[in-house]
């Protein structure tokens, strides 16, 4: 049996805006296997970012359940949710979300501070991670002093600080140009291949198609279709052939 790391059951999310109710997710059922690279695709407003937030325990569904590692997320205590965000998941955002007052190094150490790692161990780990993403020489720069691509690399290093089994990336390339975006995708893909990290990425960047194991198309708060690697290859081949 496949090792399911994320499972959603009829997840519904409604936002109240005055007297209007906006149904961002309308009953989502997906299963994600350990070690997969999944892309959630869909136009703006399709609900993919909302789904991303549900899977990452950044928001709670109005109805339905989210299971991660077999745990029903709605049954966790506040402390367990904080520990879950700290240890199990790494987040990468479109707008990087680095803390402006902490250097690259300070941003990467923060999740390790929350995890209670001793100072020496977390400093070493941060240096190692920043070296890995190619920022060994800019470790003590503030986010303001770094380019967009460099900031996203810091965010990736930070996401990996506590060795998460899942990395969630919300439009990680949307604010970057094609070349830098490609580099970021390659970096994320290498985490997936070399370290077996499950990658769940919300995106509408077509470059992400190449590297995904499966693509979940979201439209109007529903799963429109799920495409596997083989189907993607055929489609990409067709596009390339014409």
């Amino acid at each position: 049996m496949a090792d399911i790391v994320v499972k959603t059951e009829d997840v519904v999310k409604e936002y109240r805006m005055g007297s209007n109710v906006l149904r961002a997710l309308d009953g989502i059922n997906i299963e994600i296997e350990r070690g997969e690279y999944i892309s959630l695709m869909g136009p703006s407003g399709s609900g993919k970012s909302t789904l991303f937030n549900m899977i990452g325990a950044l928001d709670t569904p109005t109805e339905g359940q989210v299971y991660i590692d077999g745990q029903n997320m709605s049954q966790l205590t506040q402390r367990q949710i904080a520990a879950f965000r700290c240890h199990r998941v790494g987040y990468i955002f479109q707008s990087y979300n680095l803390l402006p007052v902490r250097s690259a190094h300070g941003n990467v150490t923060l999740p390790m501070i929350f995890a209670g790692l001793p100072e020496r161990a977390r400093n070493e780990k941060a240096e190692e991670l920043l070296d890995m993403v190619g920022l060994g020489d800019r470790m003590y720069h503030l986010p303001d002093e770094l380019s967009g691509g460099q900031r996203q690399r810091v965010a990736i290093a930070r996401a990996l600080a506590n060795d998460p089994s899942i990395v969630l990336a919300d439009e990680p390339t949307a604010n970057l140009d094609t070349v830098i975006g490609r580099e970021i995708i390659d970096l994320i893909k290498s985490l997936n291949e070399e370290q077996g990290v499950t990658i769940i990425s919300a995106t509408h960047d077509l470059k992400m198609l190449d590297v995904s194991d499966r693509i979940v198309d979201i439209r109007d708060g529903l799963v429109e279709r799920v495409r596997s690697r083989d189907e993607i290859d055929i489609e990409v081949g067709e596009v390339g052939g014409h």
Binding site: Q71, A83, A115
Partner: peptide
């Protein structure tokens, strides 16, 4: 990698660590 291990409880940070972060900020 953790496999279906129950999710632990988040720890409290030592006071000194909070103090350091707030002054840095």
């Amino acid at each position: 990698m953790q496999q279906r291990t129950p999710i632990e409880e988040q720890i409290d940070l030592p006071f000194l660590e909070s103090l350091r972060i707030s002054f840095q900020s």
